[in-house]
Design a protein around this nucleic acid. Sequence first.
DNA 1: TCTGGGGTCCTAGGACCC
DNA 2: TCTGGGGTCCTAGGACCC
Length: 444
Amino acid sequence: MKIFALLDCNNFYASCERVFEPRLLSRPVVVLSNNDGCIIARSNEAKALGIKMGEPVFMCQHILDKHQVVKRSANFALYGDLSDRVMTVISEILGVPAVEVYSIDEAFLELGDSRFSSPAELNYLARDIQFQVERQVGIPVSIGIARTKVLAKVANKIAKTNRLGVFSLYSSQDLIEENLRIDSVLASFSVGDIWGVGYRYAKTLMANGIHTALDLKRANHAWIREKLKIHGARLQSELANMPCLELASPEDKLRKSISCSRSFGDRVSELSTLETALANFTASAASKLRSQKLSTSELRIFLSSMERYDTLSTRLFQASSSSSELIGVAHDLLYKIYQANYRYKKAGVIFSDLVLADSLQLSFLKSPETAVLPEIHTLKKQQTISDLVDRLNSKIGVNTISWAATLDTKSSSADSPSSERWRASKNHCSPAYTTDWRSLPNIS
DNA sequence: TCTGGGGTCCTAGGACCC
DNA sequence: TCTGGGGTCCTAGGACCC
């Protein structure tokens, strides 16, 4: 029987900000969403002040001011890079046969086999992992251990809230004894804190007298199956220490969609501004696509204003990852759904039906536009241009070279002090210390 | 008097996660 | 006045096929 560990970085974004700014270590820190609109991460000190996750900044401004809370705009270039480093450290540790990167700040680890490793040995291993990540990357982590993923999540939550570092629900080779101990833990674990039980399910469950994880485990299976569907059935099994979720393999983890969307810094009505914004989103999503060696077969765009939400998608004749081609497609869709007289507040682009670029299937049919058969060398040429742009930008610096359509050249300087009104404001952003040469920290 | 069975594909909506 | 962004999965219903 396998044992799972869930490793979770503590207050990840706030901790990332502290790696290069150690003076923040004892101060309350919050990280803000795009447009500096919402709180998306808090240090322990900020949590203690009562600042809530997802809270709009203007609603807790008084607390931020009063306690001189340090604000940082989200710096995903930095967080993504530190995340990669954490995952690399974990996967190089002996005694961890497999790793599933679950999110930017979490990973499930497989920790050998209960027939060969005692609970004490696995606790020791987890302490070592925690130590290595903190020493090599500078990010504090908590680890939960159990025989199922859901229970490992429970254990992790307990490790985190009680600042234990490591907490295990795999406590004995004797299952009966272990299950008794698990029940005592589940009895004081809120049902809404279980992984997979969100706001709505929690409401339904509590309205029916199910308040703790133990209540859920013991609830009528058919009723749970009806209300929480297949998901609930799995949850009950996992809570009962019977694994039914496995560690996902890298193939399972292949992206099914890639998107890029933004709320605008200001409301936008002009078509030319929307063209520029969508070109930027498309170029950014296409570059993500290429970094994962994928091509997209379907492109969808959406526009939203106060009054309406419009979306339109199209299938590509031939899967592509070429920025210039995809920008053209996005613009064609834009012209079909754009309506003047609306003040748009957000737009985005979504690629789906992704295929691995190296197993690209060429069409046997002629393209409806050009009436020629797609040829491998024209695809290669487009690919080469995009690759070159990616290489220059990663070698010399972000935006060293960009697509003309992404530059705002049309709007006059008269209507707005900034020609990029669609761009969100980011007034408290730390440098991209680890991903841009120009932002390399100086030590003097 | 009698009206099947087995599919696929697509979309929208709803739930969840970090 | 001011409320993010990027994902996944499941289900139901409709249109359509033979």
